[in-house]
């Protein structure tokens, strides 16, 4: 009796300090991402702005993946496909505006590119989701991977758009007022998008929809027993997640101005997944932390040695073996509940 009454406030206080700590980390993260690249760029370190832009764009994709992976327990291994689709939604209309042909979609208009990117990724997610979500566990991992690979081969065989060699985007998406040709503007757009998307994902995970997804993750049969058909909720989340990654692809296409099927390769999907898991799938900002660590590590290691994949792979293996819930778990001491897959 006494133990329960004394334990409860203590527990609550633990949670409170933990929430404060997480809030502090989040605020710090936002502040760093807002100030550091800008300062570096203005002091002449333009290269670092490139690194940070790529990092923020991939963080958007990782947050998108985490919506189904962390929240819904759906381990999709094919999310690079959406990035590729989003990027080609910029590249193909731009290509036709420059070289003619396909008048219906030939435009530099950014709103058209954006709408195309989001629609195509939503459709691809819907069609593949309808089939993939009928499977569970390891079949789901593999079927999402196979669908992404299917898209990869489809793009490779499109000789018009460069096939294997890829496609150069000569003109970036055009918007009124702002110009994506300015690196700082592009970074600002990506950064603000990241903040908005993290906020949206936060709202989604605490909504009834998000709770249903979490319920489906922990016990789908029980959800069915209380009268919830998880399938349509999972499908909706799958589509949302695909759309977010398609948006990241739209930004990435505008950032790199060179797109190729290689960006949809299954190893790319693996990298986004690594970002999510490395950072911690249970923590809202986990994927962002994961993307930061991943990109910075990739850059630093590749500066040191051309064989940087070796230490990188070893780090990955060690982090799986010894760091069970990602880097964010270091911040969440008392939290034992993990965002495990199925």
């Amino acid at each position: 009796m006494t133990t329960t009454t004394s334990a409860r406030p203590d527990h609550r206080q633990n949670r409170n300090t933990e929430t404060t700590r997480l809030l502090l980390v989040s605020a710090l993260l936002v502040l760093i991402l807002a100030i550091l690249p800008t300062v570096l760029y203005l002091t002449g370190h333009t290269f670092w702005l490139d690194i940070f832009t790529r990092l923020v764009i991939l963080a958007i994709a990782a947050v998108g993946l985490n919506l189904i992976l962390g929240l819904g327990g759906m381990v999709s291994f094919g999310h690079a496909a959406y990035i590729g689709l989003g990027a080609y939604a910029v590249g193909i209309p731009a290509y036709h505006s420059t070289y003619g042909g396909m008048d219906a979609i030939a435009t530099y208009n950014g709103f058209f590119h954006l709408a195309l990117a989001l629609t195509v990724s939503a459709l691809f997610a819907l069609v593949t989701g309808i089939i993939s979500l009928r499977t569970r566990g390891v079949n789901f991992i593999m079927i999402t991977m196979a669908f992404a690979q299917m898209m990869y081969y489809a793009i490779v065989s499109l000789e018009t758009y460069g096939g294997d060699d890829g496609l150069t985007i000569d003109v970036r998406s055009e918007f009124p007022i702002i110009s994506l040709d300015d690196p700082l503007t592009l970074y600002a757009v990506s950064f603000i998008s990241l903040i908005i998307i993290v906020f949206l994902v936060h709202r989604i995970s605490n909504s009834r929809f998000g709770l249903t997804l979490q319920g489906a993750r922990s016990n789908e049969e029980r959800m069915l027993a209380i009268g919830v058909n998880c399938y349509k909720y999972q499908l909706a989340a799958f589509v949302m997640s695909g759309v977010i990654c398609g948006y990241a692809g739209f930004l990435l296409g505008n950032f790199t101005t060179f797109i190729s099927p290689e960006m949809m390769d299954w190893t790319r999907s693996g990298e986004i997944m690594i970002m999510v898991i490395l950072g911690g799938a249970t923590f809202l900002w986990g994927p962002v932390i994961g993307a930061i660590v991943f990109i910075i590590l990739e850059y630093v290691l590749s500066e040191v040695t051309v064989y940087w994949h070796l230490p990188f792979g070893l780090l990955l293996i060690f982090s799986v073996l010894f760091l069970r819930n990602g880097l964010a778990s270091v911040l969440q001491r008392s939290h034992s509940q993990a965002g495990k897959g199925q």
Binding site: V75, F77, I141, M273, I274, F312, L314, L316, I317, V320
Partner: peptide, 20 residues
């Protein structure tokens, strides 16, 4: 471990073996 951990660790193995 769960399948997700398998996927990540063996992905790391691919990177290592390819580089070796």
């Amino acid at each position: 471990r769960n399948h997700l951990d398998h996927v990540l660790a063996t992905f790391g193995l691919i990177l290592c073996i390819d580089t070796i």
